[in-house]
Write a protein that binds this DNA or RNA. Structure first.
Lengths: 221, 221, 221, 221
DNA sequence: TATGAATGAGATTTCATTCAT
DNA sequence: CATGAATGAAATCTCATTCAT
């Protein structure tokens, strides 16, 4: 009786294998730098077999994005508690972002794919698109909420607009990663990228925080 | 004897023509969205002729980058006077950046190509590479100088490092443009992109400025 | 012992299911417009299972043809009675053809497949092939008989040859349908196709009838 | 100075070569039975080279159709003189059709491609499409005119409608050829096809002619 | 018996680059 | 100097059929 389940599990594993290898390819060569043939070679499957598991190339990207988004958002969320003030939450969010980047480079995947599948994001945010449809909308919501909280509790500057700044923040995050993805892997020195991200986020934190915020909340290094 | 010179001049004109038309193509369709055939059509030259003037596709991009960098930097420089304080100069620099974007979209070209030709910039700044070799290094120098001035004259925060922040700033600029280039031209609404840039630059200005800076120097809108 | 029979019956039912669903697919998308995967989906069987019941794709078509031919011929035959004169029978035959087309579009199936499986029909009629082997030969026989009767009883022109004209007639029928099958279903307006068939059959009836035939026997509209 | 002209001529010859070889392939294997690779092999060009001469596969078909239509219509027209009565002209038209078929099999090409490029023809005749755009519309016009003349001069039956019958006629012509194209070339016995065409056209002629038409105008054999 | 899984062969199309004239 | 012509390599995707379980 276990047969069906095993099959199911194996099928799931194959999908995972494909995603996994594709992830590696993306990390290695960037989002544009791999073909279905490459994926076939990496997985030791035939090209046609790939199409048994995913409708087309984009569908693979989407699956990877969805999973990365899921784990990304939940990781970040786990670092934010209800007791935190807005600025604390924002600080924690960015810390988590950087930490996660260092650990899994999930952020690479997340952002790289997002930029391809939904290139108008975050320039245009489709009010009709809910978080359920496009994975990265979850993160946008999380940031907006965090900013709103900080404006309300007075730990962020009063004259900012949560939605607009959330867009700014998403764009910055995307963009850094986007550029980093371009680097050939040999040059893609984590330390340097993390330094860059920390630097930018620190400047922005300071630019967003209410005057008089404790120095320790303003640096991410 | 004027013959050789005329030839030389004509050759130079052809090169300019090719660059000019390629620029238009890039603006229209993005850095990845045009082929050598497209350039040939636009210039009314044959594809093979293009190879007489440029070794390959990348060489065209490089030439365009060089010219865009030149005009970009000199425009920005024209807006900065020696009398300005550091924060004033930084403010002026970003104002110019935004203005130039609105006018010529030169920034698109500049950044888009830079990101392709020198993807490790600004993550890695090659100390051996002088401004003379890679066009965009000029802008980097300009920003570094400006920041250094601000640190010295006390209009910027004292605990920032000019080189590091200059890298941050270059990266932000590149990145916004990079993402914007992805938008299909129909969606590439200048107003929205400018809003986004202004928003981000404002936050960063505030994050970099010394405490007590006049509000009017902190906003770019 | 009933087991073997049940098995046999079930096998037969599966075959029917496959044929039935394939018919629907053909009507929907034309004879070239469906894949074995489509059949598998429609029948809720696996692709491999299809190959247990039919040697290959063509074999499915053949089976459908056989069944369609059977029901087609018997329907037409039911409209022809021994008392009818030749011209009456021919008139009735075409009326039935058109009616059947309007009702079940069986004719589509019949002809479409015939044209694929036996493309030399009716150009070459294999004297060694009996009605038992190729399903559409039944219809050919029926038409020949009808024409012969009309020549004998003087209601059709005397200088026609039954076999030859039967071929002409089969070909016309096939051909109209063949072209109609090409139409995307949305454009496959029954009314228009019926008009076209009626028009052509009317002209041919008039061309075959003995002089002085009553006008009402010469029109099919 | 003749260089440009020679180039032009050679280019034209290449196009012709491609069309010619494609024609042969179609005659050999039918309209669906050849790939761009086949054309490449037949012409001893590379696949990519084909795309220098034709935008895509369909464009090759269209070019062949256009040429076949041209020569077909002009040949037919050459056989019709203003002095002819309607029935004489119709008779001549069909004679020419058959003769041309026997000589060049142009009709094959003409009809086969037409059926692919404009499958709704002649079921739906687009009033907005002029003869200039789709080559086969020329023939349709010619037939309509001929029929109209016959109705006017009393040599055809009075109760037919020129446009409707023209559609019938085009469809019959298309359809016979369409079916014949299916035949493997080895079986494609001209004599038999011609017999079939003659038979059908004769029946239709008799169905369209005014009563009392001379027998010799009613047969095409 | 039934099927999930796999695949080879093939289809159309694109494009940077080379080379003879 | 200029170019028309050519092409190899690659990309995405489809589909009838086979085979181990």
């Amino acid at each position: 009786m276990g047969v069906a389940e095993r099959k199911q599990r194996e099928k799931e594993e194959r999908r995972k294998l494909i995603c996994e290898k594709t992830r590696e390819l993306i990390l290695e060569r960037g989002i544009y730098g791999f073909s279905m043939q490459d994926v076939a070679n990496a997985t030791e499957l035939s090209k046609s077999t790939l199409y048994l598991y995913f409708e087309n190339k984009e569908a693979i990207l989407f699956a990877i994005l969805a999973e990365a988004a899921e784990s990304f958002v939940s990781f970040v969320q786990s670092r934010i508690t209800p007791q935190m003030t807005g600025i604390q939450a924002l600080h924690a969010l960015w810390k988590a972002y950087i930490e996660l980047f260092g650990k899994f480079q999930d952020v690479f995947i997340f952002t790289g794919i997002m930029n391809v599948l939904d290139p108008s994001f975050p320039f245009f945010i489709d009010a009709n698109t809910s978080e359920n449809e496009l994975p990265h909308y979850k993160l946008y919501s999380l940031i907006t909420t965090t900013l709103r909280k900080g404006i309300t509790d007075g730990t962020l500057r009063q004259n900012i607009q949560a939605e607009r700044v959330a867009k700014n923040v998403m764009l910055i995050g995307s963009a850094i990663i986007e550029l980093a993805t371009r680097l050939p892997r040999s040059q893609r020195n984590e330390t340097i990228i993390i330094q860059e991200m920390s630097g930018i986020f620190s400047i922005m934190l300071r630019g967003l925080a209410a005057p008089g915020t404790a120095e320790q909340l303003l640096t991410l290094m």
